[in-house]
Every structure is written in C-alpha cells, then in structure tokens.
Amino acid sequence: MTVHTGQSTAKAAGEGARGRGRATGERPGRLRRALSTHWYAWTMVAPVVIVLGVIVGWPLGRGIYLSLTDANERNVGRTIGANHIDATYKFVGLDNYVDVLSDPVFVQRLTWTVVWTVCCVSTTFLLGLVLANMLNRQFRGRAAYRMMLILPWAVPGFVSVFAWRFLFNRDNGLLNKVLDGGGISAVPWLDDPTWAKFSVIAVNVWLGVPFMMVALLGGLQSIPGELYEAAEMDGAGPWKRFLYITVPGLRAVSSTVILLSTIWTFNMFPVIFLLTRGGPGDSTEILVTQAFRQAFVESPRDFAGSATWGVLILAVLMIFAFVYRRSLRKQGEVW
C-alpha cells in the first residue's frame, strides 16, 4: 500500500537549497536527495513531531537526566525575583534506581499494578466482546442499546468517578441501601483494602467497556457475512462459528485494542486518584499514583525520585509492548 514519495516528481531547486543549508557537510547530495523526495511526508508529520518533541521529548530527556541526580525542590537552581539560587544537586549515577528497586514498596506497587491491569483489561475485553456480539445482531432497539452502552465514554471521567463515589459510599451510598433491602449488611466498598481493589477495578471496567465494545463491534462488522453462511452450510454450530470465524476475524483489532488498553490502564491515574487516592491506606496505589505522591505530596518535592519512578514505568511498558509485538509477529501478524 505504501507509495514511495520518490515516485512523485522531484521538487524545485529551492528545496534543494534548503537542504544544503541544513546539511552538516557530510554527504550533502544524499541529504538533498532525501529532502527533495520526502519533504511532503516530513511536512505532514512536522506539527506532531514538533509538539511531541517539545512537550514530551524535553521533559522526558530532563526526567532521565534528573533520575540520575539527587535533585529535589531545595537544591535545583531557581530565580526568585532578584535572587538567583544556584543548583547544588549532583550526579549520583544509578543510586536512585538501586534505591527504588531494592525497596519492597516497588515490588508491591508493581504487583498490584499488574494485577489491576490484567483484571481490568481482561474483564473489559470479555464484556466488550459479549456486548459487541449481541449488538452485532439485527433486532429492534439496537441503536438505543448501543447509545446507552456507549454513554460512559461520553461523560467526562471525573464526573462519572464522582458518581461512583456516591454510590459506593459505605454509610450513605445507594449500593449499600439496595443490599440492605436484600438483607445483606453494608459492604465496605471503599473502606476495606480488598473491596476497594474490587471497586476501583469495577469502575475502570465500567469506563473502559464502551471503547472495547465499539472497537470490537467494528471488527465484527468487517468480517464478511459469506464466511458465516458457508460455515453454516457446512453444518458448523454457533460455537464453532464463533471459534473458527469470529475469533480469527477479530485478531487484528483485538491485538491493537488490548495493547492500547493495557497501556492506558497501567497508567490510569484519574480513576484511582479520584476514587480512593490510593487508599484505604496504600492498598490501591499503583505505580503512577505513587510517582505522583513523590512528586507533589512530599516536601521538598523529590524530583529525582519521581523521575526515577516515571522512567521505570516507561521501561516496564516498553518491554511489554516489545514482547507483545514480538509474540504477535511470531504468529504472523505484521505491524
């Protein structure tokens, strides 16, 4: 599908001149050729590259650097009015990483973050799959159901999280009132470590299902109907059809949404922060909320520490994405 920009007519000499201006002296001809061939593409991606470079690249580079120092709020350079205070932090090598990795807290947080991610993504995926399959049939009211089911996606996250906090409230929440009506005594939804874990997962699943459902619904609709007809003719039952047509048909879309939703869930700051603030105690604290705590709640703000956590989060996710794509490629998916 990909067209080489080279096929399009090479551009005027003005571009070549610009290319020469930027060339570092080494093989200017090659750079000029590259520029004249690819300038369309480069122009088109330039806005993204610039914005990402400034807003993400710069802090990222700085973050990696800070994670190798002992920088905190008290020793970074700053100018307050007429007074300039020089930076006095120093390079400490990998000390921060050693500290964090040898602290049992990191393993605790990582374990819970992984559990949280796996639970959320798998539940969301399964529910999304079930609902998508249901909505993929023809029946009256389908559009209405679809609209209602997508609603959680359309409402700003912090609004719905507040709504859930109302419902989960142990003493004054509706959920416990309903349970009470059924003779079940109050459930400490957000007050007990185990229940709180359950509750945050439930809310995140609630928030995530619409995205999954819509993506999978799209995937289902792109599977040609003839395949099902042929299979039915061959006498394949519904389960077999699902297993041999639907599942492979959804392969591509599933692999993408699972990857994305894993990444998003891993770093799902607002749900945890707004629902429990990591509590009760520290039982629902994931890696991101921990890093946030280090950067903002402590005083002096520990810039080096939170950068270290940030880099580690990024590393974990990159390893995951890499392995995930490897395993997909082994199965013949090219991406």
Binding site: H38, W42, A291, G310
Partner: peptide, 27 residues
C-alpha cells in the same frame, strides 16, 4: 502513504508517548 526515513521511529514514538505517565509531567 509514504515510506520515509523516520517513519518507524515516529510510529514507535506515537505509541511510547501514550505510555508516558503524564501525571508526573505536571511540574
């Protein structure tokens, strides 16, 4: 549509950017 130098890194960047814990980038 175009195969250009920097395309694969760009794709990866787009993915990695989403992995970035934005919450700690505030300061």
């Amino acid at each position: 549509r175009f195969k250009f130098p920097g395309m694969r890194p760009l794709m990866w960047t787009l993915l990695i950017t989403q992995m970035f814990p934005m919450a700690i980038l505030i300061v």
